[in-house]
């Protein structure tokens, strides 16, 4: 019996590279290579156009390799007030918004695990159920203006502090922490907040890092809130919003940018709308690409998040 099996396995090993297999492998590798290229090439293409000689870019001579490398576009871009400001707004909302969201989510996630809380189940459902219904875009907008948040930086931060899905993730994680650790601290007379700060918070760092990464990406990418709420406050536009505006402008960007300050030399240099659009795109995508390698190990936890709008 045993011999028989061995023979069969050996047989399989010999016929492993049948012609079907070879054809399949070639097709398979080709498919993935092409799709990977499709995902990476656009970024590369935009990048080489931003670091190449402006005249060549304008003439459409840059296709596969950069020519006349210079980083002047990026240096000039920093001198444009609107872009610099928008970069600041986006960075500030990402940092502050994420920090507050993570801190709040950690605390809420801990509190809702405490069975002795007054009507705990009800309040937990009160939070979680909001994932499944949505009043709609316009009621949300009217609500924001009723609360006086239209045109304020707080409009980016406050609504995102309580994130129901993240709370579920954190709660589940905290429930897996052995209760004895907490109990001993309570014995020593520590309060709930002390226990949270000294025991729960350090122990839940992996899950908090996960929600922080995905929260930060969400903040950096979000664009409709800026579009709708900041109609009269251009100084609070996010970088995504600025990019959207530039992409929608036909050609005459230089005039608009000129009024935003900066030397005439730069305006002349950036006259080519294509270069501006490409450079702003790169400025918007580079932070994402920079944190990307760190994000990778959180992918599997993050897939459950699913909520990252992009």
């Amino acid at each position: 019996m045993a011999d028989n099996t061995e023979v069969k396995v050996k047989k399989k090993k010999k016929t492993r590279y049948s012609w079907q297999d070879v054809v399949f492998n070639i097709c398979n590798y080709t498919f993935f290579a092409v799709f990977t290229l499709m995902c990476v090439f656009p970024f590369y293409y935009i990048f080489i156009n931003t670091i190449s000689d402006r005249d060549l870019v304008k003439a459409g001579a840059i296709t596969l390799l950069p020519q006349g490398i210079s980083f002047q576009n990026y240096i000039d871009m920093l001198k444009v007030d609107t872009i610099f400001q928008a970069f600041g707004v986006s960075t500030a909302r990402t940092v502050i918004g994420t920090a507050l969201m993570v801190a709040a989510t950690g605390l809420i996630g801990y509190l809702v695990t405490k069975k002795e809380m007054w009507h705990r189940k009800f309040w937990y459902r009160f939070i979680v159920i909001t994932m499944y219904f949505n009043a709609g875009l316009i009621p949300w907008y009217m609500n924001m203006s009723m609360l006086g948040l239209t045109g304020t930086f707080a409009a980016y931060i406050i609504p995102g502090i309580v994130a129901p899905y993240n709370i579920i993730l954190v709660k589940t994680y905290i429930e897996s922490i052995p209760a004895e650790l907490e109990e001993s601290a309570f014995m020593d007379g520590a309060g709930f907040f002390t226990v949270f700060r000294k025991i729960i918070w350090p122990l839940s760092k992996p899950i908090l890092a996960t929600i922080a990464i995905f929260g930060a990406v969400g903040h950096w990418n979000s664009f409709t809130d800026s579009l709708m709420l900041m109609q009269n406050t251009p100084e609070l536009y996010t970088l995504q919003h600025i990019l959207y505006n530039y992409l929608n402008m036909s050609t005459n960007i230089a005039g608009i940018m000129g009024s935003g300050g900066g030397s005439s030399d730069m305006v002349e240099g950036l006259l080519n709308a294509k270069v501006i659009k490409y450079t702003v795109s790169m400025v918007t995508v580079i932070p994402i690409l920079m944190v990307y390698p760190f994000m990778q190990r959180y992918f599997e936890k993050g897939i459950m998040l699913g909520a990252v709008k992009g």
Partner: peptide, 26 residues
């Protein structure tokens, strides 16, 4: 502790109310 825990959660419940339930009023 049941009230203490609830009061710690209360500010967040108000946020949920203001941004998820109050829009229904609109």
């Amino acid at each position: 502790s049941k009230y203490k825990l609830f009061l710690m959660l209360l500010p967040f419940l108000l946020l949920v109310f203001a941004f998820s339930y109050l829009p229904l009023f609109s």
